[in-house]
């Protein structure tokens, strides 16, 4: 589903965030990316979302070379991906419901259909009772879960998550991972950047370790 082929990312100024990365995530596979901050986790996710372009190498998502996409195709490409951002990226002038509904609105869903889907997604992250609140009335953890609901509402074929449990207590983190595993079980590919070692080791999933832009370890895992 996701294939990195010798991908490097060099920023203007010479800093190389990723150097010659190669790996592949299959359909229905869940993998963690771990490593210290600055190791290149976020850069890697940004490349998949086409927020950045690879300097060299080729990156395929669902068989499509991401480096060759036009502006319009990038928008289409992102609709296949549910992304959870470290800084949540919520709209603060819209209520929780409208935030989660945004991807459906963009795809042109029938509003009644969208309402049902949004409710289902909010139910999964246990925020159904707060759908009329605005993000600033929520705690950091709740905002994080709104972001997760928005990522899954469109039933994407790929879910990318950048530190999705960073603001959550262990119980909620486990719940989020449970939601992710449900998606994996129905064939969604997941790539989760995290340095929550205890959580990762509990799940025993595939874990790719980055260090200074290079893969130092690719643990295949037993459970994923």
């Amino acid at each position: 589903m996701i294939k990195f082929d010798n991908v490097s990312k060099r920023y203007t100024g010479g800093h190389e965030a990723l150097s010659a990365i190669s790996f592949e995530i299959g359909t229905g596979e869940m993998a963690f990316i771990t490593g210290r901050s600055g190791a290149g986790k976020s850069s890697l996710l940004k490349l998949i979302l086409a927020m950045e372009r690879a300097s060299t190498g080729a990156l395929f998502v669902d068989g499509v070379n991401i480096n060759r996409l036009s502006r319009r195709q990038i928008a289409q490409h992102r609709r296949k991906i549910g992304a959870v951002f470290q800084d949540h990226q919520l709209l603060f002038d819209r209520c929780v419901f409208d935030n989660v509904a945004l991807p459906l609105e963009i795809c042109g869903y029938w509003p009644q259909d969208a309402r049902r889907r949004v409710r289902a997604a909010l139910d999964k992250v246990d925020l159904l009772r707060k759908e009329r609140l605005y993000p600033e009335m929520l705690s950091g953890g709740e905002q994080q879960r709104v972001g997760i609901a928005r990522a899954v509402v469109n039933r994407p074929s790929i879910i990318l998550a950048d530190e999705p449990t960073g603001n959550l207590d262990p119980d909620l983190s486990a719940d989020v991972m449970n939601v992710f595993q449900q998606f994996r079980d129905v064939g969604v590919s997941l790539l989760v950047a995290s340095h929550d070692i205890s959580l990762i080791s509990n799940l025993d999933c595939r874990t790719i370790t980055l260090e200074a832009g290079k893969i130092t370890e690719d643990y295949r895992g037993g459970g994923g």
């Binding site: 979302l49 928008a75 992304a83 990226q89 945004l102 963009i106």
Partner: peptide
């Protein structure tokens, strides 16, 4: 910021 979010979740320029 809002336009950024809209684009990140797949909104086109026209949207």
């Amino acid at each position: 910021d809002e336009i950024t979010v809209v684009k990140l979740v797949g909104g086109t320029d026209a949207f």
